[in-house]
Design a protein around this nucleic acid. Sequence first.
RNA 1: GCUGCAUUCGUCUAGUGGUCCAGGACAUCAGAUUCUCAGUCUGAGGAUCGAGGGUUCGAAUCCCUCAUGCAGUACCA
Length: 535
Amino acid sequence: MIIAKNFFSIINLKTLIYFCKIFFMKNDNIRVRFAPSPTGPLHIGGVRTALYNYLFAKQHNGTFILRIEDTDRTRFVPGAQEYIIESLRWCGIIPDEGVSAGGDFGPYIQSERKDIYTQYAQQLLDSGNAYYAFDTADELEQMREALLKDKHETFQYDAAHRLSMKNSLTMTAEEVEQWLKSDKPYVIRFKMPANEQLTINDMIRGEVHVNTATLDDKVLFKSDGMPTYHLANIVDDHLMKISHVIRGEEWLPSMPLHVMLYKAFGWESSMPEFAHLPLLLKPDGNGKLSKRDGDRLGFPVFPLRWPLDVNKEEIASGYRESCYYPEAFINMLALLGWNPGSEQEIFSMQELINTFSMERVGKSGSKFDPEKAKWFNKQYLLKQPDAEICKEAIPYLHGKENLYDTKTLEKICGLIKERLHFVKEIWEQVHFFFEAPTTYDEKAVHKRWKEGTSSTMNNLIEVIKNIEPYNINECDTTINAWITSNELNLGTVFNSLRLCLVGELKGPHIFDIMDIIGKEETIRRIETAAKIINY
RNA sequence: GCUGCAUUCGUCUAGUGGUCCAGGACAUCAGAUUCUCAGUCUGAGGAUCGAGGGUUCGAAUCCCUCAUGCAGUACCA
């Protein structure tokens, strides 16, 4: 008995500590970053990467950091950084730390960290893991061509070739010093080991094997005085104490380089874990989703709209402007490449945070399915109260919303919401509540308007005139009774009537329409139709 | 070319050696809902698990080979 009691108290204590760690305490060990470059708008693949980073961080009570990687000043696009921040905000992916959020590890914009990189590049130079290279672009090109011509080999600046190039390994110390003192350009390259077998772990793919012989001496520092992505990335991740690097699969080939850099710096023990996310593919054909695919195939690739050219003539549409709910957008994106292992498909952000796991992220790229995206939005639209849909719909009512009071507008929304994927589409479904038809669908007229229909409709007007009080129930009983007593065909009458009121054979229940547009308008529309569609 | 990664219904995916002649969702089609369209409900079709070899009593699941696709191969990220 006592033993059992002790046993349980130990278990409980352990569980309690674990519980506290997971749910209450800020876990300082888990720090992830989303690090886009401000070269244009963030596309949905980028948003998904940000989302997975965010979910992972939140689940472990860790920190989600936003860092801007702008080491290539030539590709800088004004407004892109603001766009990224605003997109994430719209999605509900809010950074805990970084650009716009602040923090103790700043600055979070790489161009503002230039001095830091210089210092670390020097460290690599001093330890013999890097060297100066002086070859011009032309010389490199010549080397490439010569090698291809003579030996059918593709040139790589690597262990096999570096000693026949112009660099601090082949030049005397004086020559190097002289060059560095002059204004002549130079770069700093990483000295990749000649032949080392690497086994690296990826959280999604497991072990990845590479031999350093296949890798080249990547430029770490450019002649313009800025580091390349590779250097900046490693230095920043180390300094910012990043625990997990979660990024797109396009980075997988440079993972060995990054690991080698950690080793060269002597940071191997605190190296982050890597997770390379599969790519998002275009819906038709193969290849990764690109910025022009969306509007070519009729769906947005960007969270927010963005002008594709400087003249703002070609504008790429955005999810926000297409009336997607950010929650639906996030839900759809989360399921593209990850699955919960259950059959649940609708997840709130909190549910995603609770359920997400890297182990359940797939390995192969996913084709984006615009149809499924629409379906997700519909699920969220249907969850909205009618009043909310109504509020969202008003901008799409072409200024005609004043025709009805709020309560009626809400009723209209409730009546038609099930046939909507987006609030934006509402006019198509409600226009006849606001405007009398001016034309009548030809096919429908041909099918539903026979000889004598006009007179039947005129008789119906008399019936409607006498309905009092004028409401759905009264309309229903009176008109049905009239049809029965005159031995008319129900379908014929209703379809003709619908043609008068709507102009085509569509829309909600006929009595709902009659009720909302009112007695006078109903009568007026029947009169007009009976005159215009004359047989 | 080289290097790496991937490969289950049209699409997203479940599946970790027997319960899988492969389950769900989107899309498609049919029936029902006796005014229409839409929706909803019910149902159907749809995957020789990329191909071929092994291992095993037994493989979508493990191993090998090939094919295909994708990514990277920049002083871009």
